[in-house]
Design a binder for these strands. Sequence first.
DNA 1: GTCCATGCAAACTGTTTGCACGCGC
DNA 2: GCGCGTGCAAACAGTTTGCATGGAC
Lengths: 151, 151
Amino acid sequence: MSKEGTTDPLQVRSFLRASGHRFTHQRQLVLDVLQETQGHPDAETIFSLAKARDPKISLATVYRTLALLNEAGLINKHRLGEDHEHFETAQSTPHYHFTCLKCERVIEFEAPQVTQIGRELCEREGIQITEAHLHFSGYCSNCREGDSFDK
Amino acid sequence: MSKEGTTDPLQVRSFLRASGHRFTHQRQLVLDVLQETQGHPDAETIFSLAKARDPKISLATVYRTLALLNEAGLINKHRLGEDHEHFETAQSTPHYHFTCLKCERVIEFEAPQVTQIGRELCEREGIQITEAHLHFSGYCSNCREGDSFDK
DNA sequence: GTCCATGCAAACTGTTTGCACGCGC
DNA sequence: GCGCGTGCAAACAGTTTGCATGGAC
């Protein structure tokens, strides 16, 4: 589960310039943080990691950058817990998530069937699908019933 | 696509009493509204519909009631657009949603494959799944490309 | 030098909570 | 009448925005 993604500085730079955006220190930084972070950090986490390297960066910039990168398709947004967004660099193969309601652990999995479901729906309804999210929640192997153990 | 559900006054009343909750006018009202409303209203919509019948009901009560009914399994919560929750009375068969990014139309569909995906994941990961959400977004038949027509 | 991007603080949205009163039981 | 449920307003979390300054090009 390594982070591939097309996010090296040069590509990002030319991508931004091509779409009429400037290549700033902050944009690079947010992307770096996202690439180097395991899992699915939320905006606040990304912010504090970025701030560790550039104490001047602001939360607003992080949000603005995340929105930009998301629109560009370089990163993806997910509602994992309930309340707020999590981010990850765009992967080549679509995948989905399970979240443990107790320990918040996230398990990623692939499910090609989802693409098929979408395809059928498109045909039947004449729609066009741009995004698919499958999300399970429940209890992971450590948290199901045996709660009392690790208390 | 009729609203079945086990939400007639008598059943709700005894359900609430059984779980140590009181049967109030407001709780009945919220449930009524939810049953009589097509689609997937959000809290604000439910509030204004309820308010039309009882001008004294408060938004806080609506939220508290929705939370209660959701925990009880009588209704379900969904993130359809992006920003806020939508609600619907619990259906007997699991179903999922497509949302049009332009006109916000929601299409419901069934997909038994999802249950299967969940089952496999449970076996492989030793987890326990309590909830499943599959959500597509994109453009409905009216909104894909032909935007200019209905301008 | 131009203009987009940033930092800051204030605004905003959806939802939750503290508290005194009111009503189901 | 006891105690949960309510209404109100204030609090809250996550995110967005207006504005003056700063930096990419």
